[in-house]
Computed example of a mutant assay.
Amino acid sequence: MSLYFRYLNIQLKSQLQYRASFLLLSIGQFFIPFMVFGGLYFMFERFGQLEGWSFFEVTLCFAVIHLSFSLSECFARGFDAFSSLVASGDFDRLLVRPRGTVVQVLGSKFEFTRIGRLLQSTIVLIWSIANLPQVWSFPKAITLFFMVFNGVMIFTGIFILAATFCFWTIQAIEIANVFTDGGREMAQYPLTIYEKWVTRFFTFIVPFGCVTYLPLMYLLDKEEGSWVTGMLVPFGGLLFLLPCLLVWRIGVRHYRSTGS
């Protein structure tokens, strides 16, 4: 972790060398998600509720998933941009260093301009909680924290899987965007509005349901929710991340050097 934070410090200093560009990109990242949020707001203005879910209940779901995605995109960007390391042969340099490849790839790229998205998601989260008094308790605050943590683990795991395919295909496959960008758009709404097979897939295979829907049932005192579900389900992200790391190790073993 000491090495990781050194990578973090170096990348931050390098990006702040162009402060105007950094500031403008951060502002842009702040306003872009508002377009999506605006669509959500006007939908509730027109229809009032969504399958029994109120506006602030859905915005809490929206804030958690966008906050998770922004954190993962900021700190796990190295895996999202991993194809460039393979194509250029720079991954060979990582292999001969006396540190694990996971830490080195994580430290190869950070997107600090995503602070704009983080701020936007945090504002929506605070606004939602302020209008949902049933969420105001310490156990539920802990659950909310693990929901975000769980989401970061899931998105990071998807980035790792997409990067692993680069060992065979050189370029990252676009299907990964179905589970990153598509997963973010899908999971910003409660899973009950989708078909059952979609709900089951995104609960037991790619466990976005562990990020939002199942813990939300506990946070919002829904009939199906319980404190056991709320406190234990958010750890599903770790159960998803561990196999992704195992697949990564298999990919590294099958990597063929560029010979450069």
Rank of each mutant, 00 (worst) to 15 (best):
L3T: 12
F5W: 12
Y7P: 07
Y7H: 14
Y7E: 09
N9F: 15
L12W: 15
S14Q: 13
S14I: 13
L23G: 12
I27Y: 08
I27Q: 08
F30S: 11
F30G: 06
I32H: 09
P33S: 12
P33K: 13
P33Q: 14
P33R: 12
P33T: 14
F34A: 14
M35H: 10
G38V: 11
G39F: 09
L40T: 09
L40S: 04
Y41D: 11
M43Y: 14
Q49S: 15
W53T: 13
S54T: 15
V58C: 11
V64K: 02
H66V: 03
L67N: 01
S68W: 03
S68L: 02
F69I: 00
S70F: 06
S72Q: 07
G78P: 02
S83W: 12
S84M: 02
S88F: 03
F91I: 11
D92H: 11
V96Q: 07
R97N: 09
R97D: 05
G100H: 05
T101L: 08
V105F: 05
G107W: 05
S108M: 01
K109I: 03
T113L: 07
I115W: 07
G116E: 06
L118E: 03
L119Q: 04
S121K: 03
S121M: 01
L125T: 01
W127Y: 15
I129V: 15
N131P: 00
P133Q: 10
P133L: 12
W136N: 07
P139S: 08
A141I: 05
L144S: 07
F145G: 13
F145N: 04
F145Y: 10
F155Q: 08
I160G: 06
A162W: 04
A162R: 14
F165C: 10
C166T: 13
T169H: 08
I170T: 12
Q171N: 10
E174F: 13
I175G: 06
I175P: 02
T180P: 04
G183W: 09
M186W: 14
Q188E: 13
Y189S: 12
L191E: 09
R200D: 09
F201T: 02
T203I: 04
F204N: 04
V211W: 01
L216N: 11
L216H: 05
L219T: 03
E223V: 02
E224W: 03
G225A: 04
W227L: 10
W227F: 11
M231L: 15
L232V: 12
V247G: 01
R249Y: 14
G251V: 06
R253I: 00
Y255W: 13
R256L: 14
G259E: 10
S260F: 12
